[in-house]
């Protein structure tokens, strides 16, 4: 067929070529970004955690303030435990977490913050009462904290932030024992 082509044969105009390549590159970049997010879901250990704020559940405040920023807690070791009332594995570790809190709360330099991931208020308070939890707790409104920690969407997950606000350790799944929690916290000391 090549022979029969008439002198009118035109190649693809440059502007069209550029448009096509830009479009393709954009598309691949977009998907690449999504892939990158999906395959590196965890916040990076050893890097500072971006600041976020939260509003505590009523009756579960820290130092009596209803709201806080993560950066307010510089100088303290922060353990962020993400849970939900519908999450069965969370129930396994809830008593141990509370037990651990009793050990640390008077020291003042270690803070536990429970973050309740997509839950109903009723379910959340029921859970907190059921396990007699006393450490500070807050709902993860619009999943903001989850997306800042860039975490996988399973519960429970626990994050350990050191005195400088740097992420030290991540635990996926429930803690098996009090000793494990203590060893976990020791990573930031």
């Amino acid at each position: 067929m090549t022979e029969s082509s008439t002198p009118t044969k035109r190649s693809v105009p440059m502007w069209a070529q550029i448009t096509i390549w830009v479009f393709l590159a954009g598309l691949l970049a977009l998907v690449g970004f999504g892939l990158n997010r999906a395959s590196n879901p965890m916040a990076e250990i050893g890097k500072p955690v971006p600041d976020f704020d939260l509003v505590y559940f009523e009756g579960y405040e820290y130092n009596g303030t209803p709201e806080m920023k993560l950066s307010d807690l510089r100088g303290k070791v922060v353990l962020i435990n993400i849970w939900a009332s519908w999450c069965k594995p969370c129930e396994q570790e809830a008593p141990e977490l509370e037990e651990a809190w009793q050990l640390y709360k008077d020291r003042g330099d270690v803070v536990f913050i429970g973050v309740d991931y997509v839950d109903t208020p009723e379910g959340a308070f029921g859970y907190l009462k059921k396990f007699a939890i006393t450490f500070p707790n807050a709902p993860d409104l619009q999943s903001n904290i989850s997306s800042i920690l860039n975490r996988q969407m399973g519960v429970p997950e626990t994050y350990l932030i050191d005195r400088e606000g740097v992420l030290r350790q991540i635990k996926i799944g429930p803690f098996a024992s009090l000793a494990e929690i203590q060893a976990f916290i020791a990573n930031a000391e």
């Binding site: 082509s5 008439t6 044969k9 035109r10 390549w21 393709l24």
Partner: peptide, 16 residues
């Protein structure tokens, strides 16, 4: 994607 599109652009004038 890239190789197919490049090939198609190259042969475009011949597909009359």
């Amino acid at each position: 994607l890239i190789s197919s599109v490049a090939l198609l652009i190259k042969r475009w004038p011949e597909l009359k």
